[in-house]
Design a protein around this nucleic acid. Structure first.
Lengths: 84, 84
DNA sequence: AGCAAGCGTGCTAATAATACCGCTACCGGT
DNA sequence: ACCGGTAGCGGTATTATTAGCACGCTTGCT
């Protein structure tokens, strides 16, 4: 196995992450937040909709910065049910 | 351009991240930490040596958890010189 | 000598990030 | 009612990159 395909758990985790991000975005448009984070709107949308279960660290970091939320919180929420 | 190749800045950022991770690891062996974080030793090594500039978010999250360090701190340090 | 920890390289399958297409829903203006 | 603009969704195609494994090599320690 050269690279384990993403499991269902991974997908769920990504989905949770996306949900959090969406909540944090609130009223602001995807376009604006994406620009603020330095990525394309389409990528942001994919992340929010959970179509990108394991985004790059800096992508999330930039997003978190643009949304003024903590990386630790994000990680915590995602690790939450995984550890359970 | 479908996918922007990693710039030099990205590489440097990744290198800084790796350095931090290595420091956090301290005396513990790569093998042990990698196992604790749930990834292969090779991957950990690549991240520490900066050969993987933009690892997956959860990879770093797991690592940070295994090393007991904050994601926010990592992001901060990496964004540090980038914003400068 | 033997062992463990690291490093470096090459390789493969799977994925991330991007752009382009069309489609729907909502809104205000004419 | 019709038109145009904005915001989001879904799918597809493309390229660069990740994460994993394997082999060999070096170094330090016992």
């Amino acid at each position: 196995m050269v690279r384990p395909p993403l499991t269902e758990l991974d997908r769920e985790r990504g989905h949770r992450l996306g949900t959090l991000l969406r909540q944090a975005r609130g009223t602001r448009s995807m376009t604006e937040v994406a620009a603020a984070a330095g990525l394309s709107a389409e990528t942001l949308r994919k992340i929010e909709t959970g179509r990108i279960p394991t985004p790059a660290f800096f992508t999330i970091a930039a997003l978190a910065a643009a949304l003024n939320i903590s990386l630790d919180v994000l990680a915590e929420v995602c690790a939450d049910e995984r550890a359970a």
